[in-house]
Nucleic acid binder design. Structure first.
Lengths: 197, 197
DNA sequence: TTGCCATTCGAACGTTCGTTCGAAAAAGTA
DNA sequence: TACTTTTTCGAACGAACGTTCGAATGGCAA
C-alpha cells in the first residue's frame, strides 16, 4: 500500500492527455494519439478510464478542485480586502502558468462535456466565481461586481493564447501587472498611494 | 447583374455555418449538420465552398476584416488618446455583441485552421493588436503595453462565455464599464477627474 | 506448485466522417 | 425551339473514429 501503481499510472495518463488536449484540442485528439503519447496500447487505456470524455472530465475536475482549494488558502493567508484580491490574482495566474495544459483545457474546453458530466464542473465554476465576486464586493467598488469579476477572469484566462512560461516574463511579474492594472487602471502610476493611508 | 444569387447564397451559407460553429464548436459540427441548417443538400454546399475548413477560414477572414476596418473608422472619428481608446473598446464590444457567432468563432476557433489558411488570419490579428497597442502607447501609461493590450483583449473577448445580448445589459453599457475599469481601475470612481485637467 | 485477479493489448466491430461522382434539374442565351 | 452553363443532390467511397472483445501476460497469495 506504500505505492499505488494504479493511481500513479492513471495520473500519468491524465497528465499526458492534458498536454495533448491542450496542444491540438479535445475533439481533434484521437484515442490513438493518447496511446502513442503515453506508450500504452489503445485498449489498455480503457482499463483506467471509461472513455475519452471521461478523460476530459477527470482532468477538468481535478484541476478545478486544485485551483479552487489553492485560491481559498491563498485568500485566507492575506489580510485586508486589497491584499486578498491581490493574493487571488497571484494564485490564479501562477497556478495557470504552472499547470498550463490543464488550465488551458479547463478554460478552452468548457462546453466540450455533455450531459451529467457537465454539472459538477459548472458547480465548481460557480463557487470559484462567487469566491472572486466576494473579494471584489469587499472592496466597495463603484463598478458592477459581476462584470468586474468576468472581466478579471477574461484578463487572466486569456493568457493561454499568448503567454509562454519559457519567456522572460515570470508568472509573479505578470500577476502583479494584472493586479495593478485591475485595481488602479491603465493611467494610474505603477505604485499608487495606498488607499488606506 | 443587379442581384447576385450566388453571392447571396454563399453569404447565407457562411452566416448559418457561423451560427452552428458557435453553438457546438467547429470540430463537432458535421457537414451534414450544416446541410440540415441551411436546407441545402450535403453535396450542394461544395458548389460554394471547397470544404469544411475553407468555410471556417472564410468566416474568420470576413469577420476579422470587418472588425478591423470598423475599428479603424471608429478610432479615426475620435479625438484625443483617451477618446480614441474608448472608441476602440466601444466598437469592439458592440461589434462583438452584434456578430456574436462570427466573433465567437473567431475568438474560440483560432488554431482550428491549418497550413496556408492560418497565415492570413494571423496577419490580420497582428495588425489588429498593433492598432490597439498604438492607442495604449499614446496614453503614456506606466504599464507594459503588450501586457495591457492582451489584458484588454482577454477582458473583451471573454464575453462570449457569459454575455447574452438578450439580457438587460446593453453592449454600449458593457463597453463603457470596460472602459472605466480599464482606464481607472476597480477602485476609482465611475466618473473620474479628467487627467487633462 | 495452483489459483486468482489485475493489467495489457492485437484485432476487430459498427458507425460516422469529409469528400466525390455522375446525372438530373433549373436558369440563361440564341 | 435547341444549346450551354449553372445549380442541385442521391448515392456512394475510403478513411478514421471510439469502443469492445477475448486472450495473453504479470504479480501475488495460498
Amino acid at each position: 500500500m506504500a505505492i499505488k501503481p494504479y493511481d500513479e499510472r492513471l495520473d500519468q495518463l491524465l497528465r499526458t492527455a492534458a498536454d495533448v488536449f491542450a496542444a491540438k484540442g479535445f475533439h481533434p485528439t484521437t484515442m490513438r494519439d493518447l496511446a502513442r503519447a503515453t506508450g500504452m496500447s489503445l485498449a489498455g487505456m480503457y482499463h483506467y478510464v471509461a472513455g475519452k470524455e471521461e478523460l476530459l472530465f477527470l482532468i477538468q475536475r481535478q484541476c478545478f478542485e486544485n485551483v479552487y482549494q489553492g485560491a481559498l488558502h491563498a485568500v485566507e493567508s492575506a489580510t485586508g480586502p486589497t491584499e486578498r484580491l491581490r493574493a487571488f490574482i497571484r494564485h490564479h495566474v501562477t497556478f495557470f502558468a504552472q499547470h498550463m495544459s490543464e488550465m488551458k483545457v479547463l478554460s478552452h474546453e468548457a462546453g466540450s462535456l455533455s450531459g451529467e458530466r457537465e454539472r459538477p464542473i459548472i458547480d465548481l465554476k460557480r463557487r470559484y466565481v462567487d469566491l472572486l465576486a466576494g473579494l471584489i464586493e469587499a472592496l466597495d467598488t463603484p463598478r458592477d461586481v459581476r462584470i468586474a469579476a468576468y472581466a478579471l477572469f477574461g484578463m487572466m484566462n486569456w493568457i493561454y493564447t499568448w503567454y509562454h512560461t519559457a519567456g522572460p516574463l515570470s508568472a509573479e511579474e505578470l500577476a502583479e501587472q494584472f493586479t495593478q492594472l485591475y485595481l488602479y487602471g491603465l493611467q494610474a502610476p505603477s505604485t499608487p498611494v495606498s488607499p488606506a493611508g
